[in-house]
Design a protein around this nucleic acid. Sequence first.
RNA 1: GGGGGGUUGGCCGAGUGGUUGAAGGCAGCAGUCUUGAAAACUGCAGUAGGGCAACCUACCGGGGGUUCGAAUCCCUCACCCUCCGCCA
Length: 440
Amino acid sequence: MVQTSGQPSLTFPARSSMQDIRFIREHPDTVRKAIADKFVTLDLDEVLAADRAVLELRQQVETLQAERNANAKLVPKASAEDRPALIGKGKELGVQLAELEPQLREQEEALRALLLRVPNVPHESAPVGPSDDDNAELRREGQLPSFDFEPLDHVDLLALQGWSDPERVARVSGSRSYLLRGEAARLELAILTFALDFLAERGMEPLSTTALVRPETLTATGHFPGGEDQVYRLEGEELMLAGTSEVPINSLYAGEILGESDLPLAFAGFSAAFRSEAGSAGRDVRGLIRVHEFRKVEQYVICRPEDGMAWFERILANAEGILQALELPYRVVQNSTGDMGLGKHLMMDIETWVPSEEKYRETHSCSYLTDWQARRTGLRFKGADGKPQFAHTLNNTGIASPRILVPFLENHQQADGTVRIPAALQPYLGGKAVIGQPRR
RNA sequence: GGGGGGUUGGCCGAGUGGUUGAAGGCAGCAGUCUUGAAAACUGCAGUAGGGCAACCUACCGGGGGUUCGAAUCCCUCACCCUCCGCCA
């Protein structure tokens, strides 16, 4: 399956122009501020100029097309002697169009490329700043563990119990790979299954998805342009490996016009997730924090605009509920404008306590994209007025493994090297309250 | 891997190169009728862009070509169905 010629075909049409060009025209200062606050490198005047150029050229082309169409309609009615003149005129118009149309296409493509880089406007509550140093802690939940023994970090704990095999797996799969043995393998599956059940009980439809996606789905979510080097691509295939099931789920209804009664669509998507981690060499190389392939239960919501904020709170509460059930201490932080990414309107991370590092580490990320992503994807519904409008989309982690195992193992370790299993999880581990062999 | 068939508006489904943006049906909306509902009847009704009013332009899987003119002809790619082979 090799792409031989032409452009890759879109399985769904790119309905609209990313960030709404009309909104940009009418609120250039708002967009300028968003660009500045998000520290995006983009000249809005360049966008506006490209927009004007396209409009102007398009008007020329459309005028010529109108002439051509009118002329062509006269041909069948014309007398034999008038006919050659009309056909001649048609040919002449055709020549002019043949020159202008490719120019128009080119300029439209240039504009489109620029619009793909226009950010969503951040929520007014978002702290303004360039990086995650500017994130604001909103609250802390749960009790930090206090050990009356010398706690191990998760790497040593896994080694102690024979639950990992880092040297061998590196031989097989290279760095940033992982392998879990025995009870740890069952623990991973138990946590994922628990999270899926937890979300299903709260109205999220379970979805098992493939991570294999077409490139345009990654443009639709907003990962492209910009995140290309984070994504694995398959040699000789027009397919890539998504870093989250947000990608396939977002495109599931691409290009469709849904009925208002079809919304909300709320999913708990389960899939493998792949990230090249280009540019993070040397960071978190030890243990399970940062690996190339992991498993994830992802919350994804497509809803009416007026329900967006309520859904944000709901999927944030879902994630917190999972951590509470797993009896893990965490904090919620609101991401700064510079840390939240191009398409996001509002973003909060949940960071879970990692005892060995004595700090909170990101385990969940909750995002509200308003219509920014839906515009790229062509996700519309017919509202009460009968007019199609763009839906709003949100996503949040449900649980991501093996990263979640880091705080889980470390917080729940006991003096004898065994690991305590919270009550909510025990049914998923055959009723066990403790896993691992007591040391010595 | 090889051979057939297909891809038309929210859905189903017609479509001879020349008012076909696209028949017809269903669903939808409004109205008539009715105590109310159903049925029946009448009307409205694709999406996007530009003026934003009349109107104009584009779009019948994607891209390209032929033509004065293409949903209709040609090439190409993708996807779906199906038969054969191969593998499980």
